[in-house]
């Protein structure tokens, strides 16, 4: 485990894992798409639109998963001051935001034929929207603080405060929602899901997870490179400065 803590070792290991991860996610994605379109039947209630669920649900899971990952990495940054934790946080933010965005868009595209409107202020949709706003805040913070170490610590605090906030938002939005439109919202999923739907969903979820893991690893590798470039540029600038003096 500690050998991973060294960025150089991490670079080598991640570089070796990455092609396999990408290949596995490509294969699973192909299988999942086949299952989703040719094997899964149309739902008797939702019709063909149930196929949107095969991307909506995995992206929702990944949107939440990446925020959790960012929060765990934030603890790593604040407690152990580990550079890999900084890098993991920074690489996770855009990926999580992208999946949350896809989740919202597919939710709207599913809602239009099902609910007759693009957007419903449904508790789950609203919570995801707040999550996306929090991702945007985190990404804005990364862009504004120049020094990577300081940026990582500032973002960590923001991420952790947001992490505490997520369940509170979910709770309050649930409360607000029942207040304004009592039990009119269509319920999806739960234990009622049929096995012929479950398999494509699971395969797609796994494919998306592997894909995002590959993206995350690649992002971390690039981020380590970026830090090296930054350090070397500063060293060179210092040397030129000394030479000029």
């Amino acid at each position: 485990m500690w050998s991973l803590a060294n960025p150089t070792r991490f670079m080598a290991l991640a570089g070796r894992i990455l092609p396999w991860l990408a290949a596995a996610s490509a294969v699973l994605l192909a299988a999942g798409l086949y299952l989703a379109f040719f094997v899964a039947p149309a739902d008797y209630q939702q019709g063909e639109t149930v196929r949107i669920m095969f991307i909506h649900v995995p992206t929702a899971w990944l949107g939440l998963f990446f925020y959790t990952l960012m929060s765990l990495s934030a603890v790593g940054t604040l407690v152990w001051r580990h550079p890999l934790a900084d890098v993991s946080q920074k690489a996770a933010a855009p990926i999580g935001a992208a999946f949350t965005f896809v989740c919202l868009v597919t939710g709207a595209l599913w809602g239009k034929p099902m609910w007759g409107t693009w957007w419903v202020w449904d508790a789950r949709l609203t919570s995801m929207l707040v999550l996306l706003l929090m991702y945007l805040g985190v990404m804005a913070m990364w862009r504004t603080v120049e020094d990577p170490g300081r940026a990582a610590r500032a973002v960590s605090i923001l991420t952790l405060v947001g992490f505490v906030n997520v369940p509170i938002v979910k709770f309050s939005v649930d409360w607000w929602n029942t207040l304004h439109q009592p039990a009119s919202v269509f319920r999806l999923g739960g234990p009622t899901i049929h096995a012929s739907m479950l398999w494509p969903l699971l395969v797609m979820a796994l494919a998306f997870t592997l894909l995002s893991a590959a993206l995350h690893l690649a992002g971390m590798r690039t981020e380590i490179l970026r830090r090296r470039v930054r350090t070397l540029s500063i060293l060179e600038a210092e040397r030129l400065d000394r030479e000029a003096a």
Partner: peptide
């Protein structure tokens, strides 16, 4: 509803 399904898969593909 086909348009909605195609649109969601297309947007997902685009983002990825």
């Amino acid at each position: 509803h086909q348009g909605f399904i195609v649109a969601s898969y297309a947007i997902t593909a685009l983002v990825i």
